[in-house]
Amino acid sequence: MNPEPRTLTMQIPPEERNPRQPAPCHGARRLLMVAVSASVLLGLATAADLLLRVAPQDDGGASIWMKAMTLSAPALWTAGSPQRHPETVHPGVDLRFSAGLMTAP
């Protein structure tokens, strides 16, 4: 009578015509989707952050104070140690046989 329903059936993808799947592997597909999207998201997020941090970072003003006080080294070692104040290292003879002790204060 009306040929339209047959035409419509031909247009529906086979998956939708027969929605019942005997071996759908839903869990596996979900797992795969999670693995792919998580990898892509993590990769993109890291890459985007790497790319977007173009401007020099604010180091909290430490470098401004370094300059203002004309400090020679950051405060990473205790005051008085040669690492903290490299200009105070005594101009003595280089003791070559003390290899490995050069970092001792």
């Binding site: 027969n18 019942r20 005997p22």
Partner: peptide
């Protein structure tokens, strides 16, 4: 994938395991 599912459905029907 869709053809696999169709084949499986057919075999399940033949084996009385649908």
């Amino acid at each position: 994938w869709s053809r696999m599912q169709e084949e499986i459905l057919r075999q399940l029907a033949d084996a009385d395991l649908s």
